[in-house]
Write a protein that binds this DNA or RNA. Structure first.
Lengths: 139, 139
DNA sequence: CTTGACCTTCCCGCCGCTGGAAGCCTTACA
DNA sequence: TGTAAGGCTTCCAGCGGCGGGAAGGTCAAG
């Protein structure tokens, strides 16, 4: 099948498939005489794997590692698990950071009247240091 | 003061200050005869404001809007509040997305033995569709 | 034989910096 | 007065992960 069909079936846009080939995440696809890329059902499965891994937040580099493990029949599931847990730790860190921002922001928002007067604790907080010094904020 | 001093006092790296000037977030600094940028205490305050806003996750564009409101004595605090709440909504969306990823990932991790055998529900899940179809995952 | 959809390559832009090269300026010290 | 170190200047390139769009080749249907 052509790249457009592979794109539709895998959920990965054609441009992204070419990009993945360019950065070496997937091997170079075969070509027709006219130069069109050709894909098999197995290729589509790989693209779906990639798509799912990406949607779980794995970086392209991590996906490459996952693909290697996937294709390695002698892998240890501990390696996969460790990779996944590392990634979860990264997610947790980002969640914590975002929650810290949210907390600080909401504390300011709650003190802001939100009317047509100019007095604004949000701006005051940004001006006077409401994120990193007092309250033990994020980052 | 020179850019290095302003950087130290504001917490914004010199390169980033130049970048902010380049993209128009801050006005062009004055210069000495030799071409060195010159900053006042007020400029450092502005940089600190920017630094805090950025650390709360506001984009540079949003920070520009905040700065405009900050300098506008006739502003309505409702406008600032709305901007902040919009941003909180974005943060909430990102948190929800990350939590969705986390949930899906941990569900797979929990089923993985994590030993030296190759059987791995994580890889199986990625191969068979564990993120968007079943379970109602994120994104 | 034409039309329109598809494919190809290529390069630029996004965001928010960060690093580095090449070169000028300033300051401290001998 | 010389010189060495550190600061400053500009410009260019790259990170991740694509997306947009131009210029051109190909293919299937009418």
């Amino acid at each position: 099948m052509n790249i457009g069909t592979a794109a539709k079936r895998s959920g990965v846009p054609a441009k992204t498939i070419r990009y993945y080939e360019g950065v070496g995440l997937i091997p170079s696809a075969g070509r027709t005489a006219a130069g069109y890329r050709v894909y098999s059902d197995a290729d589509v499965e790989t693209l779906r794997f990639i798509h799912r891994a990406r949607s779980l937040g794995f970086s392209v580099k991590e996906v490459a590692a996952l693909l290697t493990l996937w294709h390695d029949r002698g892998r240890a599931s501990a390696d996969v698990r460790a990779l996944a847990l590392d990634h979860v730790a990264g997610i947790d860190a980002r969640i914590a950071e975002l929650q810290g921002m949210r907390r600080t922001l909401m504390a300011l928002v709650d003190r802001c009247a939100g009317d047509d007067r100019p007095d604004c604790p949000i701006l005051d907080g940004l001006a006077a240091g409401a994120c990193c010094q007092s309250g033990g904020g994020a980052a």
